[in-house]
Computed example of a mutant assay.
Amino acid sequence: MQPFSYDALPMRVRFGEKALEQLPGELEELGVSRTVVLTTPREQAFGEQVDELLGPVGLGVYPHAAMHVPVSTADAACAYIAEVGADSVVCLGGGSTVGLGKAVALRTGLPIIAVPTTYAGSEMTPVWGLTEDGIKRTGRDRRVLPTSVIYDPTLSTGLPVEVSVTSGFNAIAHAVEGLYAPDASPIISLMAAEGVAHMLTALPAIVADPADLQARSDALYAAWLCGAVLGATTMGLHHKLCHILGGTFDLPHADTHSVVLPYVMAFNLSAAPAADDALVRATGTDSPATLVRELEQSLGIVGSLAELGMPESGIDEVIRQALAAPYSNPRQVTEADLRTLVTAAFTGSPIG
């Protein structure tokens, strides 16, 4: 076996049905006593229920989390949290809410506790992102890593099927890219393959029966593993493209990852045989990229960036930004390669 290093991230996880009920005790164990609950506008009512669960510890709900974490939203959230005198933040929801919590932690140093209701997996990473003037900046900082994560499968049973599916493929993208990252390891490969296999099994079951708690539990477990893979490795071409697409054109985060994923897989796996072997085992097929694309189509995922609202004129801008900043990738990326890949994702061309 080749030498490797693996740096485990410090984090506490509670997993199980009705685990949300343990949130007050978790906050007490962390030594915090004044908490703001962050949500999106859509989940405000649920946030108010959680705030009520916290009793005197809860200082209210800030329901303004948005995709790609606009700088103005982060500014306003920090101002509100300072005004009420919070010493901690609970992030209730998906990637948008966790992303806002990370922005707060980056600026204030306050601990954040994540309660995921989707399968994005961002709660397991020290990666933050902020968007301003159409440009999304990202970075890594352990200050933004949630101190605790509470995984409660019952919280995702009401998640719309289409959101469940796209956030699940978003999680798969984390695992795939971790498999061929320069800092991958046998431990990462185990988590990635396990996460991909469980998610690919769970998503069709969720589509067939959105109330299937076992399928929801499997998807949440897979999201945990896939997110942990991303948290421990270096991002490459896939995440670079999706950050550009999201920040520049305000495309929906998980949907964008879902559309781009099979095209980047098809491009990169030929140059990453170990990653390809792991995905062949996890998917049970010799063409993992094709299987992912076909499964996405069968589960109703939008098939192209054009359908998500990206203008065709934006292809040149995506290429310009992708070439302007270096990033790790197992295969050299040329301007011609990018044009072929992004154009295929824009039109929804067949894989291969």
Rank of each mutant, 00 (worst) to 15 (best):
M1K: 12
S88H: 02
S88Y: 01
G309R: 11
Y119P: 04
S217N: 02
T39Y: 05
A271F: 01
T73D: 02
D212C: 06
D255I: 02
D51P: 01
A272F: 07
L225N: 03
S156H: 10
C242A: 08
M265N: 02
P3N: 10
I113G: 02
D316Q: 06
V115H: 01
L323I: 12
A114P: 02
A205N: 10
V264K: 00
S258N: 06
A275V: 12
A175N: 09
G121L: 06
E296N: 09
G352W: 12
A103N: 10
P10K: 00
T157G: 02
C91E: 15
A79F: 02
G93E: 14
L213M: 09
P350M: 09
V104W: 07
M124C: 13
K102E: 06
A344Y: 00
Y62E: 15
L145M: 05
Q49W: 08
T285V: 13
E194A: 15
K136N: 12
M11W: 00
E162V: 00
H174L: 01
P273K: 02
E48G: 00
L130D: 15
V342I: 15
G31D: 05
A222Y: 03
P126W: 04
E28G: 07
V264M: 01
T201K: 15
C78T: 09
H64T: 06
G99S: 10
E52W: 01
G303L: 05
A45R: 14
L20E: 00
D250H: 15
A228R: 04
P70G: 02
G227I: 01
A202L: 05
S258Y: 07
D87L: 14
L237M: 08
V333S: 13
H238E: 10
L230G: 14
H68P: 07
T166Q: 11
P288L: 05
L110D: 00
P160F: 11
Q49S: 13
K240T: 15
A289M: 09
G178P: 03
S33I: 04
H243T: 01
A211T: 15
M310Y: 12
Y327I: 11
